[in-house]
Simulated assay, not measured.
Amino acid sequence: MAMQEPRHQIRALHTESTVTVYQAYAPHLGLPAARDGRFPTAWKRDRMTWIKPSFLWMMYRCGWGAKEGQETVLAVEITREGFEWALGRSCLSHYERGLHPDQAAWKRALKAAPARVQWDPERDLRLRPLPYRSLQLGLSGGAARRYADEWTVAITDVTPLAHEVHALVRRDELDAAVRLLPEERPYPAGDELLSHLRAPVAC
């Protein structure tokens, strides 16, 4: 089944107006954010921040909430309008022959873009790489500030969920673990949003 997945596709928990992305922080940032439903003033709005629509990729990145500085896992519900604003103005974080005219053009685009995209291997329940890719969306400057102060609708601490799923995986109760995962479906992003982010098919 995995091989039938498109190589580059956004899969996310989403509604008609919002999309959920994941981040992990130290408790001094993550707990106030979840409590108040907004990022605290200590959250640095002038730094690049990476958001991930894939729960399992977030688990891979933060080690199920066990890595130092990533002990609090947040589900951040943001507006689809903001998410698509960033996608439409993003640039791939690496040069792709055939997608960009040349490396100089890619570097200029990257420098000017308020957002950047990486397509990293999606993960299974044991955090092993799958043959298709998961979106990572980096926000900088004005995009990061909009994310924190305009696009965010709700913030939920999902650390207990991360620990519960991890415990089931360790006990090899994979069917039970799957039932707890967020329902991530293909996000309805048309070619106008993704054509500049997909590597050529030949690659």
Score class of each variant (00 low, 15 high):
R133C: 13
K52D: 02
W57R: 10
P186E: 06
R38Y: 06
A176D: 14
A189G: 10
P188Y: 08
D172G: 11
G63K: 10
R145H: 13
P188V: 12
G82T: 08
E96K: 14
D36K: 14
D102T: 07
R45Y: 04
D149E: 13
E173V: 01
P200Q: 06
C62W: 00
V117L: 06
D175V: 15
P131F: 09
P182C: 08
G30C: 00
A105T: 09
Q103F: 07
M59C: 08
Y25L: 05
F39Y: 10
A26E: 05
Y132L: 01
H166N: 11
L92V: 08
T41C: 12
D149M: 10
L139I: 15
L127A: 07
A202F: 13
D175T: 15
G82F: 02
E184K: 06
E68C: 14
A109F: 09
W50T: 11
E192G: 06
S195Y: 10
S140L: 13
R116Y: 07
V19N: 00
W50D: 02
D157T: 12
R146H: 10
P188T: 14
A104C: 05
A26K: 15
P131G: 03
P114S: 07
F55V: 03
A112L: 03
Q4P: 06
A104L: 09
Y25K: 03
A154Y: 04
A202I: 12
T152P: 00
L181T: 13
P160G: 08
L110A: 13
W50H: 03
A66L: 13
E5Q: 12
A75I: 02
S134E: 07
G30L: 01
A2N: 09
A143M: 07
A26Y: 04
